[in-house]
């Protein structure tokens, strides 16, 4: 049987400081296919960041198994190989940039892998152009905006040429423009480079381009389907502490009011088209 790129089987994880009967991840199973774009949505404390750290072996599951590309994360000797395949981007861009010059920071990962200088140069230039930061190659990180810094952090992971990138709330500290820049870069990587993307976030709008949306609440998966379906489950979303995007909220209200619209649409344009078609169809 051909197994998926990521296999999570009945995983439970509990932090030392957690009280009894309360776990960060509770019996979670999921598999993720190569080249897919998955968004994991969840409120604070839903266990989504814990899941990210479990995926690259920074945390080891208490129960269950996680296998990345055939490598078991619970074995310490697999850590290096797993991190080569699965890159993790964190929330705060400031605390992920190590060097004083953008291009040198992007080179940090490949340098650790012991790659030839010429090949590193090539990868760094390519990674910076993929995230649209080529013009800032020689800049100092502290001169950049939040969105730009986060794109540098993304390029730093990209230059290691991982097969999968997990992003743990990469936009939480950014302004709307910065958020858009980062999300566009991520989407492009998935579509053009066929990199498997797992985007962890609490902004529902960011799930628009995903193939699959998973909703987590209190350490468990409460919904797992394609975006349109998940967004129409307004009850599940509300009980998970997620607020609907205004467009979806509007469509839900119209639907409840008796208008025959599909409430699972998230982009403003899609919403306008839907309303327009229903109204003009009458």
């Amino acid at each position: 049987m051909q197994s998926s790129f990521i296999e999570v089987k009945n995983v439970t994880y509990k932090y030392d400081e957690d009280v009894e009967n309360q776990v960060a991840i509770n019996n979670v199973s999921l598999s993720i296919e190569k080249g897919s774009f998955t968004v994991i949505l969840g409120h604070n404390g839903s266990g989504k960041s814990t899941l990210a750290k479990l995926l690259n072996g920074m945390l080891k599951p208490d129960k269950g198994r996680i296998v990345i590309d055939g490598l078991d994360t619970s074995k310490t000797e697999n850590e290096y190989e797993i991190r080569k395949r699965l890159g993790l981007v964190f929330q705060n861009p400031d605390n992920q940039i190590i060097c004083t010059i953008v291009e040198e920071d992007v080179a940090f990962g490949p340098e650790n892998l012991g790659i030839e200088p010429k090949e590193i140069r090539k990868r760094v230039d390519e990674a910076l152009s993929l995230v649209g930061m080529s013009d800032f190659a020689k800049a100092a990180p502290h001169q950049l905006s939040g969105g730009q810094k986060q794109r540098v952090a993304l390029a730093g992971i990209l230059a290691m040429e991982p097969e999968c990138i997990v992003l743990d709330e990469p936009t939480a500290m950014l302004d709307p423009i910065g958020r858009k820049e980062v999300i566009n870069a991520i989407t492009r990587l998935n579509k053009e480079k066929n990199i498997t993307v797992i985007l962890i976030t609490h902004f529902m709008e960011e799930a628009e381009n995903a193939d699959r949306v998973i909703i987590m609440n209190k350490g468990e998966i409460v919904a797992d389907s394609e975006p349109l379906k998940v967004f129409s489950m307004s009850d599940v979303l509300k009980s998970s502490g997620l607020s609907l995007p205004q467009t979806t909220e509007l469509l839900t209200l119209l639907k409840n009011g008796g208008l025959n619209v599909n409430s699972g649409i998230i982009s403003p344009k899609g919403t306008a088209d839907e309303i327009f078609s229903v109204i003009s169809g009458r």
Partner: peptide, 26 residues
């Protein structure tokens, strides 16, 4: 707190010290 996060980020980028490391700029 920053130091902690930075250490995690360095770990994620396969940093294992100076051994076996190459440099882009010679």
């Amino acid at each position: 707190r920053r130091a902690n996060e930075l250490a995690e980020a360095m770990d994620c980028r396969c940093y294992t010290g100076g051994k076996g490391r190459t440099r882009m700029k010679k």
